[in-house]
């Protein structure tokens, strides 16, 4: 039990640090095409244990988002997207439920449910998170094509990073 808490706590710190210290500084499109950023911190929510209560998911999402926001200097924007991700996680999981259902003692990892399953689940979560984030960032649906472009370009590159992470570390918990 304490093992799971420690793993996730460590993951929380590492993801936040990677996001704000490394990925925040990477500028892919340059000044002319600033539609691409790399966002991998939702992976923390994606990998939380299956038995995490719904409200705790939401609260952890808020905590994670606020930590990112402090460094991005955009209070509330990442937080609202993470809160949203925490809220929809049970519904997305239900969408990808395997035949026998989930074993609540485990985390939703590729090690348990397969690589393809994990990528589909993580991609859905990431996409919804990014769409929500860029919507709140624009704060209006007037620029919906702009939001879509940012979401899709960021989604592709972030998903690649997540796949790389999965292949290298293959988390057990």
């Amino acid at each position: 039990m304490s093992n799971i808490v420690a793993t996730n706590g460590l993951r929380f710190i590492i993801f936040v640090l990677i996001q704000v210290l490394v990925l925040k500084g990477i500028d892919i499109g340059g000044a002319n095409f600033n539609y691409i950023s790399i966002i991998i911190y939702p992976l923390f929510i994606i990998l939380l244990p299956l038995r995490t209560p719904h409200s705790i998911l939401v609260l952890l999402g808020f905590l994670l988002g606020m930590c990112i926001d402090i460094f991005y200097d955009s209070y509330g924007i990442h937080a609202s997207a993470s809160v949203f991700s925490g809220y929809i996680r049970p519904y997305v999981l239900r969408l990808f439920a395997p035949k026998g259902g989930y074993n609540l003692n485990y985390s939703p990892v590729a090690n348990r449910y397969g690589f393809n399953w994990f990528i589909a689940y993580a991609a859905t979560m990431l996409f919804l998170h990014l769409f929500f984030y860029f919507s709140v960032d624009a704060f209006t649906f007037y620029y919906i094509s702009d939001i879509a472009l940012r979401t899709i370009s960021t989604f592709i590159i972030s998903l690649l990073i997540i796949i790389v992470y999965q292949v290298i570390f293959n988390p057990k918990e």
Binding site: Y75, G76, T140
Partner: peptide, 29 residues
């Protein structure tokens, strides 16, 4: 419905933060 209640409360808090601390979004709001 704890998840939904927390979700709504947290989103309201976030919305408040977004509008209060970010100039651009605040202006749109």
């Amino acid at each position: 419905h704890g998840g939904t209640v927390t979700f709504v409360l947290m989103e309201l808090l976030c919305l408040y933060l977004v509008v209060e601390t970010n100039t651009e979004q605040g202006a749109i709001y």
